[in-house]
């Protein structure tokens, strides 16, 4: 598993310049464009309307979790499908490495990537004075956990995907709506009452809540435990399924 992990790290060292664009710059641009820019309008209209803080402070941890989801999903789906189709998995199949080791190694690598990207984002948040205190470091783990909760099921599915187009479709119809309506940009409490329960079922909502409460210092033990349990279930469940689907695709 560590060998697989090291392989991906080596590969990453060659391509980091490209991926840094997506992983770090993307959410940062949103933080500035939406958090600061649009935030100026929000704060003018109704200062400290949401959770008693500026819009940027509200939005930033949401973006942190959402970015973790997007990065982890993309690497866990497109990255895995490519590796299974014509990349690293193909060349590893004839070696003694077992498919579940490939899965675990790749997921470990994705975790590591999400951790790095989230860390960079939190540093920027701190620089802008958008975090409540040391508690925010918990948000780093929260974001990473959110990433894994998406990467594992994504990998379990994508290892069997033969057309990258399908990943595009899932991204567009599942990940994008999650990103938009899980409380990233505005609080779920703003939604009409009848639809709110649906939001509480969305995995990203748990990620966003976990990160936001930790970042703003309003986390409760019960609340955080529920979020963590939900995300952990997805991560572990995803990995268990991945063990089966990896074996099915790589050792048919």
């Amino acid at each position: 598993m560590l060998r697989v992990f090291r392989y991906w790290v080596t590969l990453y060292r060659r391509t980091w310049r490209g991926s840094i664009v997506i992983n770090v710059l993307n959410p940062l641009l949103f933080l500035i464009g939406i958090g600061a820019g649009l935030g100026a309008l929000v704060d003018d209209n109704a200062p400290a309307q949401i959770a008693g803080v500026s819009y940027a402070a509200f939005f930033a941890p949401g973006m942190l979790a959402a970015a973790a989801m997007q990065n982890a999903f993309l690497e866990g789906s497109a990255g895995v499908a490519r590796a299974a189709g014509f990349g690293a998995y193909r060349s590893a199949t004839p070696t003694p490495l077992r498919p579940e080791q490939l899965a675990a190694g790749h997921l470990l690598f994705i975790t590591f990537r999400v951790l790095i990207a989230s860390g960079a984002f939190i540093v920027v948040m701190a620089a802008f004075g958008l975090i409540g205190g040391w508690w925010a470091l918990g948000a780093l783990l929260g974001a990473t956990l959110t990433g894994v909760a998406f990467a594992a099921p994504a990998a379990a599915w994508a290892v069997g995907v033969r057309k990258l187009r399908h990943i595009d479709t899932v991204f567009r119809f599942v990940i994008m709506p999650l990103y938009m309506f899980s409380g990233t940009f505005f609080a779920v409490s703003q939604l009409p009452e009848w639809i709110r329960p649906v939001s509480y079922l969305l995995p990203l909502w748990h990620g966003v809540e976990l990160c936001r409460t930790l970042s703003l210092g309003t986390a409760t033990i019960t609340g955080s435990s529920v979020h963590i349990a939900y995300l952990l279930t997805l991560a572990i469940g995803g990995f268990l399924v991945a063990r089966v689907t990896y074996r099915r695709r790589l050792h048919p």
Partner: peptide, 21 residues
Amino acid sequence: VEPILYLLSIGVGVGMLVGTV
């Protein structure tokens, strides 16, 4: 799909917080 999502979430959702420009 993407423009509609943006219109709904930022235009309508965040719009509630913005009021008018």
